[in-house]
Design a protein around this nucleic acid. Sequence first.
DNA 1: ATGAAAGCGCTAACAT
DNA 2: ATGTTAGCGCTTTCAT
Lengths: 368, 368
Amino acid sequence: MAARPPAGQPATTEGATGRTTSLHVARRAGVSQTTVSLVLNGGGGKAGLSPATQEKVRQAAAELGYTPNNAARNLRRQRTGNLTFLCPDLGNPYFAEVIGAAQAAAAEGGYLLDIIAAQDEAAKLQAIARLRGGISDGVITTAPTTAIWDALRDLSARGIACVTLQDRGDDPAIPAVGVDLEAGGHAATRHLLALGHRRIAHVSGRQSFPLRARERVHGYRRALEEAGLAPDAASIVEVPNSMAGGAEAVAQLLARGTPLPEALFVFNDNMAIGALHALHRAGLRVPGDIAVVGFDGVSLGAFSTPMLTTVEHPRAELGRLAAESVMARLNDPARPAPGALLPGRLVVRESCGARGAAETGKGGARAA
Amino acid sequence: MAARPPAGQPATTEGATGRTTSLHVARRAGVSQTTVSLVLNGGGGKAGLSPATQEKVRQAAAELGYTPNNAARNLRRQRTGNLTFLCPDLGNPYFAEVIGAAQAAAAEGGYLLDIIAAQDEAAKLQAIARLRGGISDGVITTAPTTAIWDALRDLSARGIACVTLQDRGDDPAIPAVGVDLEAGGHAATRHLLALGHRRIAHVSGRQSFPLRARERVHGYRRALEEAGLAPDAASIVEVPNSMAGGAEAVAQLLARGTPLPEALFVFNDNMAIGALHALHRAGLRVPGDIAVVGFDGVSLGAFSTPMLTTVEHPRAELGRLAAESVMARLNDPARPAPGALLPGRLVVRESCGARGAAETGKGGARAA
DNA sequence: ATGAAAGCGCTAACAT
DNA sequence: ATGTTAGCGCTTTCAT
């Protein structure tokens, strides 16, 4: 798109600000600004500009190293051609894969994707405030608190397309794309139950979802109840959402003085890796002494020792659908944008103690 | 900064485009647009606006849910207040830490940081083309190829401040911030030599640095030579830069039919984790059968089995210095912006076979 | 087949 | 202490 100057050497500019503008190109090509705009935006053919004129313009633009000014273009067009991904945790490779797919889908739809890192609520609100200024046409984000939902609704009302990742709200204008966490938590727990474990603890991410019900936990509880276990069999440890947090959870369980659970269902794979590590340090064997199942299927789990059994999320699908949903809304603001609730997939590896390390479908391995 | 509408409910707007502009605020407050601009940008005090007027303006802005339009503001100001981080690999947590620090430093300097993911050269060039349009005031990026350097020089000549991460070029206007990879590679290799290993292979990232000399390798070679080993003792395996690549390297070494090296110096920790995993799969014990040293110090290495000995990069420092360098240039375009070459730090854990798992200083553990 | 002119929303120099 | 005016660089009717 942007023409390159002859040889890395920037061409001399003329304007008041020192920047080369479309007017300079026009003068050099001996045409009007209109023509330049038409040609450079591909409308030259439609408008019936002669090939000669088009060539002159392109030539001049290339010679001057002209690049259109984004601010001016956006101001005039009242849109940016950008989508923004508000990332809650850059350190978790989970999002890298979601973002990659979102970016690819955006590119296909003619949009460019940029990312803003915003871990805590304040950062997210600040980022949303930036978005209100029109820096982007749409946003993909998580929305864990009511304040963020309020801000998103406002954003949406201003014509900026919003879609949430995982978090579901009540505004039909803001669809959600996510995986069925309840079913996932249920599948993970049921798998452990099927392997004969009874005392199964859940390691949860602290403060991860202040607003929404913790669906993994519901699935976990439901599985326990279905197995005829008393509700108080549920044992939940809350720790920070990180590898260190996972290790901390194990430390807490160890410090309790009560016998260790037979199995752990962990909030996500990152934390599960931390738990695996702490268990190893403590001289416990996984899955021999204690079984572990993670959640989300980040590639890291395939490289741990032992390899991690997990409920894999369709991360690329998530990213693609999110981007497509945003673009659908942008293309037709009237029609309600589509959301999606995708199934997770139980991936049986080593850490759960099932013999066959084959990967089974979502139904859960009937291993034991 | 951005005022919130009364109760999540967007206030009725008036303008032709449906957006609330500063003119609406002005009318509502019974003042001029100038006054609104002054007040909302904090210049109200300096310009000597009466507190009453200021209050009126703020009131009106809040009531209308006014947010300044970014495109218009940027166009007028000829700057954006943004910095951009061009991230070559979102999946590697290495960059998450660098970005976090860069973002914090940017915020301190009054800038906001956004991120563009650009893995391959084409994506990077496209991103730089976007930057030429003035979407950001400065950029932090890697610059592994000549085409990218050309594009960066052009960008820099247009007044957009550039700083590279790790890659050093010859343009004084584009400083580099990085760690001393040669010294790091030397320290890692010397550590392995000091532990008594002689046949030490290097697992390198394929195509990682088409342009620049691979400094890790130089350090590696230098250490071998200093130990009196013949230059051809150097054995280098090139694989993709990923965990899977690290595993692949081990597979290649195994397939050679020759005896396995006594030790591996791996390009980065991510790849080293993959190598660790493959070695474990192959029934080899680390460090018993083979020692492994990684590079970069990503937190993951502290949670692997065995824990990874590595050369830790000061990632937060890197990010902070990069952002500060860009801002320094922006604040004073005349003065040459500062670069930095920071030392890595050998962190001795388990995978190398040194007994004491204590972390030693950069000089390298005199362990064996 | 091409050009002239207006205006997107904002800020800042210059009045008053 | 506040208002008037011009213009950032672009796109897009509308006119020729």
